[in-house]
Simulated scan of single mutants.
Amino acid sequence: MAATLKAASAVTVLLGAALALSGAAVLHGMAPSRPVDTGAIPPALSSTAPSVGGGVLPVRLGIPALHIDAAIHPVGVDADGALRVPAHPDQLGWWSGGARPGSAAGRVVIVGHVDTAAQGPGAFFRLAHVEVGDKVRVQLADGQSRTYRIVARRHYRKDRLPAQVFAQTGPPCLVLITCTGPFDRATRHYRDNLVVYALPT
């Protein structure tokens, strides 16, 4: 079953003010403890205006320092404002309503499971351990790749995830999202989202 990135209020294809990564039937409660916030978040102007465009579809993401290497598949937003995450926990989802790597503006948003009940750790299980300065390599559909450098790590309550995480104006930026924080075994939800920001090198 796919987890979803859900808005607490109605959203357009371009986000709402509060989004939450959930997946009541699949999360396992294994995620690392809440990470410490670090680094400076790149500026962005939150807007419903489209990004400048351009760029190439991402197909794979690697973070060598964390031994993360996972395929990326496009994901869309449901009518209820849910951004899907791939059903397989070892895969990542690129928000197809956002920027692509190489775009002149906007956030390239990639989401993934931290873990699942049936299959254990997900593609982003180690993401909480990323450090400022770590490199992210994104392979593209045209055979080329782009490299990013981690500049910030933040955790947010799911009902307080800022809209600027998904902004499609401002400098290009890669945003990685998964679950973190306390796990409620009654609801089978993590309370928080982990958001990692990276800039092109």
Rank of each mutant, 00 (worst) to 15 (best):
R100L: 11
V151N: 12
T38W: 11
Q91R: 12
P172L: 02
P43Q: 04
F183L: 09
L45F: 04
T12G: 11
S47V: 02
L140N: 05
L57P: 06
S47N: 05
V36I: 11
T48S: 06
L161A: 06
D134P: 14
P172D: 01
Q144N: 10
G23L: 00
G120Y: 12
M1E: 11
T187Y: 15
A128V: 03
G112W: 01
H189I: 13
S22F: 04
I68M: 00
V151L: 11
P121C: 08
P121A: 11
P35R: 12
A71S: 14
R188Q: 15
V111K: 00
A49T: 04
P32Y: 14
S47F: 04
G133C: 14
G181A: 04
A117Y: 03
P172A: 00
L61F: 08
T201Q: 15
T180S: 03
A8H: 12
A104S: 10
R126F: 05
D69N: 15
G23E: 00
T201F: 14
T4W: 10
T12C: 06
V132N: 05
P121N: 10
V36Y: 11
G112M: 01
V195P: 15
T12A: 09
P35A: 03
I72L: 12
I177G: 00
V130W: 02
D159C: 03
A99H: 05
T187I: 14
P35M: 13
V111C: 00
